[in-house]
Design a protein around this nucleic acid. Structure first.
Lengths: 229, 229
DNA sequence: CGCGAGCTTGACGTTGTTCAACTAGAGTGG
DNA sequence: CCACTCTAGTTGAACAACGTCAAGCTCGCG
């Protein structure tokens, strides 16, 4: 991880709500000095159990949000793509992160003083609602995940995850960008079973598979497998 | 469920944050007309998928917060005791509930206009922080639950749940107040396995069991079973 | 007295984990 | 340029954990 302090928000490709809010009230001024950080693949962006000191905003790249479980086994809840509040769920007066986030590829993250954000969302109605809205969506996603993990069997979860990844990449053909083990962590199965499901689905001509290059061939069947569990 | 509209908050046994906030600004005035509702055991207080119209506040009794899953199988995330915001997780601009809540015993719930709460927490710093704080705790609890459900086996989850219930009742000896099936839903196992675990733990003298009357005999062992999974 | 809900127990099959061995490809240093 | 090694991926077999089905029990209540 590497900081580049002297980045000006005005030149940022993405205008986050915080910048917009500040800029709306007092346009033209650079009112805060966010730390702009660069993360390499597999770098940990925030760590479960550590103190929440900044609001984190994913500007570029992608990252996985996961919980660190027992015996070093993790469960990945979802993948973050810009624009995304990374610290969102823990952001509100919770002293420490209840999850971790790690970069899935080269990523850029903006660090904003927590005190500033708190001051802002207390003063600014729209910002608060927009944060809360994002918040509600995360909670709904987690609820869905709990059901999926506990009531579907591996084939159904695997199908669901392929659909999720495909939608995430916006194409039926995509580069996986993670190991079989990491795929397993997304749906709480072992690495070996992840491999088995990949080859199984490939043999059944549901997907085509060349290493990390995936293409969904039979989206309808995939959807069906997802639904029946 | 039965409403009793003419209840005055001043006589309420529990002063919720919303009342306190309103009263602090303009003491002595009855500024809002909450609906005070009475629920019987098993009554559904709010239903997954329906619109969020009021902030709900549990004043008396207890309730379970659960997600309705596939094939009418539910997962109970946790139990609510007063004082508790029932609608909390969905409260912030999320149009519909992502979970359900049902009374576990005779309970009383206060219904407060959502628009009033929103107006209040935008204006009032302390209320906002207190809501957010409660929020963060819920999220942390859910994260812990996900790990427990997916990485511990039934015995460990069962032990954990006994400890949880005992702490909830504030005693090693307590009345269960729910069926074996409902206990199963708390830890995502079948009714049959819930029964088996009860008898198993009873035979091993970890608990004493007479119908719904439970007493924890060996708390240390229970804790150990919980920890090793 | 009989009915039904909740509880209990046994048998059986499926699912998924774990262990272990093996393969393929990418780097690395001599 | 070739061994060496390391990581990721792959496959098989044995095993344990749970769910499901089926049957029977018990208690409270109409």
């Amino acid at each position: 991880m590497r900081f580049s302090k002297k980045i000006n928000c005005d030149s940022c490709i993405l205008k986050c709500d915080i910048y917009t809010t500040l800029n709306k009230d007092k346009p033209g001024q650079q009112l805060f000095n966010p730390l702009h950080a660069h993360f390499k693949k597999h770098d940990v962006i925030c760590k479960q159990g550590t103190e929440v000191t900044h609001a984190l905003f994913l500007v570029k790249g992608s990252a996985k949000l996961y919980i660190e479980g027992l015996n070093h086994k993790n469960i990945t809840l979802y993948i973050l793509k810009p624009p995304a509040y990374i610290g969102l769920l823990c952001f509100f007066d919770k002293p420490e992160y209840s999850y971790s986030v790690a970069a899935l590829e080269e990523s850029e993250v903006c660090f904003i003083e927590l005190s500033l954000v708190k001051k802002l969302y207390v003063e600014n109605h729209d910002l608060l609602l927009s944060l809360n809205n994002a918040f509600g969506k995360s909670v709904a996603a987690i609820m869905k995940k709990i059901i999926s993990l506990n009531q579907k069997q591996a084939r159904g979860r695997f199908a669901e995850n392929l659909i999720y990844l495909s939608e995430m990449h916006g194409s039926a053909k995509f580069h996986l960008g993670m190991t079989r083990k990491e795929v397993g962590e997304m749906i709480a199965i072992s690495e070996e079973n992840a491999v088995r499901l990949f080859t199984e689905f490939s043999k059944e001509n549901i997907i085509s598979l060349k290493g990390q290059e995936i293409e969904i061939l039979d989206a309808a069947l995939l959807k069906k497998i997802n639904e029946v569990g």
